[in-house]
Computed example of a mutant assay.
Amino acid sequence: MELTTDRLLLDRLHPDDAQALYACRADPAVARFQGWRPASVAEARAFIDTQAEPAAGLWFQRAIRLRDSHALIGDLGVCLPDTPGDSVEFGISLAPAHQGHGYAREALHAVFHQGFDVLGWRRIHASVDPRNTACMALLQTLGMHQEAHFRESLWLHGEWVDDVVFAILAREWQAARPL
């Protein structure tokens, strides 16, 4: 999946992205809400090497780059379902310097459009720590609805954390056409 928006390019992670990926994912403000944080640039590079083409039941990461400079500003993970028609899950990370500029919304809008309007996905969902209020607000602006709040359901970085699930159906996306 390679997507282009007005300001962004979503494409494969490359080995030379390892330093920027490490810097983003190891930043405490980002790592706090992510299940994976690399311990080194070498670990980030090894992770990049594992990224293959999208396959059912597996997560794949895509780079979020500024379109003009191709600078890596974050990454987007997608997990395609094992069974066609089941829900597609996603997660997104942006470097703190690039948060608050609408990049995450623009990237997700492109993914939702591709998934719903081109690939025929039925449902997209995301799991978020409710302390990440900016992410929850973002998901709501995309037309996603909170479906569940699981209390202390995940062990993450040495503590039990809550997990909130947001989702949107294809028919809701097509009716709302956000952005």
Rank of each mutant, 00 (worst) to 15 (best):
G91A: 12
G91R: 12
G91L: 02
G91C: 01
I92A: 00
I92W: 00
I92R: 01
I92E: 00
S93D: 11
S93H: 07
L94S: 13
L94W: 04
L94T: 13
L94A: 09
A95T: 09
A95E: 08
A95Y: 02
A95P: 07
P96W: 07
P96K: 05
P96R: 05
P96V: 12
P96N: 07
P96E: 06
P96S: 08
A97G: 09
A97Q: 10
A97I: 04
A97C: 00
A97S: 13
H98E: 08
H98W: 15
H98D: 04
H98Y: 14
H98A: 00
Q99K: 07
Q99A: 08
G100H: 13
H101L: 11
H101T: 11
H101W: 06
G102I: 02
G102R: 08
G102H: 13
Y103M: 02
Y103L: 00
Y103H: 14
Y103D: 00
Y103V: 08
A104V: 11
A104R: 13
A104H: 07
A104Y: 10
R105S: 09
R105H: 15
R105D: 02
R105Y: 07
R105L: 04
E106G: 09
E106W: 07
A107D: 05
A107C: 07
A107V: 09
H109I: 10
H109Y: 02
H109A: 11
H109P: 00
H109D: 01
A110V: 12
A110R: 12
A110I: 04
A110C: 08
A110G: 11
A110S: 13
V111T: 08
V111F: 11
V111P: 04
F112C: 09
H113W: 12
Q114W: 15
Q114G: 04
Q114Y: 15
Q114D: 14
Q114P: 03
Q114I: 06
G115Q: 02
G115A: 03
G115D: 04
G115L: 00
G115N: 06
G115H: 08
G115M: 01
F116M: 00
F116Q: 03
F116P: 01
D117W: 01
D117Y: 00
D117N: 15
D117V: 05
V118F: 00
V118W: 01
V118L: 01
V118Q: 11
V118G: 00
V118E: 05
L119Y: 10
L119D: 15
G120T: 14
G120Y: 11
G120C: 04
G120K: 13
W121Y: 12
W121M: 03
W121E: 07
W121H: 11
W121P: 06
R122Y: 08
R122F: 03
R122I: 02
R122V: 12
R123G: 03
R123T: 09
I124A: 05
H125P: 01
H125Q: 15
H125D: 14
H125L: 10
H125V: 03
